[in-house]
Amino acid sequence: MKPTTRVTLAAVVSGVAAAMGVTATPAAAVPVPVPLSGAEQALGMELPEVAGELPVLTPGAPDGPRYTEDRLLPERALPQLPLHGGLPGADVRQPLPQVGGDGFDHVGLDTPASDVRALAPSLAVDAPLGPPSADSLGLPTTRLPQAGLVSPMVRTIPSADLGVGPGL
């Protein structure tokens, strides 16, 4: 196979993969530690342990125009752009002194980063001319122009876990 054929084939395959919305990596979250040790030493008390996760948004491939039989312009003049990412996560652990002893227990709240799938708003426009009609000798029919906004969409399933346990 010639090198030009290989390059052309690779470009076609990558173009098809991009058009289908294939992504190489899923949405990732970057861990963010919150250092509170300096505040613990300055205040002379134990503070909660806090860690977080910040999501990284990755844009997907936009939906292409959809032509229908009854319209002169495509269904969505401005396509919707999909975004994949996540809600930020957090892990908080607070020391809890035992009532009848010298030890400590803990209260913990864990909210893992959850996936978010969103679609940006889109613009839908229809021209004042319709398709040619046999009743009007092949001339296009006229109608009122239409414009609309396709609403954005957000989909996610957040979760949280609140618990009390022994030890720190």
Rank of each mutant, 00 (worst) to 15 (best):
E40S: 06
A147D: 00
A29S: 12
H84T: 07
H106C: 10
R71E: 04
L137V: 15
A61G: 07
L54W: 03
V92D: 00
L9Y: 02
A124N: 00
A118S: 07
T23M: 07
Q94K: 10
T156K: 03
L57P: 05
A134M: 10
A11S: 15
L168C: 02
L96K: 02
V125A: 05
L73S: 01
V30S: 05
V50T: 02
P140N: 07
A18Y: 03
P88F: 03
T23K: 11
S122V: 04
P95W: 07
G64M: 11
R155Y: 08
L72Y: 14
D115C: 13
A51H: 02
S136G: 09
S122M: 00
R71F: 06
T141K: 08
P158L: 04
G165I: 12
S151V: 15
P95A: 15
V30A: 11
V13A: 09
H84A: 06
R93P: 00
R76P: 02
Q94M: 09
T58E: 02
D102G: 14
P131A: 14
P140I: 10
S151Q: 08
V30Y: 05
E53S: 13
L129E: 01
F104S: 08
L168V: 12
V7I: 14
D63W: 02
D110V: 14
V34F: 07
L57Y: 09
L43E: 01
G100Q: 07
A120V: 04
L81C: 13
A11M: 11
G44C: 09
A18C: 04
L57W: 13
R66S: 09
L96V: 10
G38V: 06
L73K: 01
P88H: 05
G86P: 00
V150M: 00
T8N: 01
L87T: 09
L36C: 01
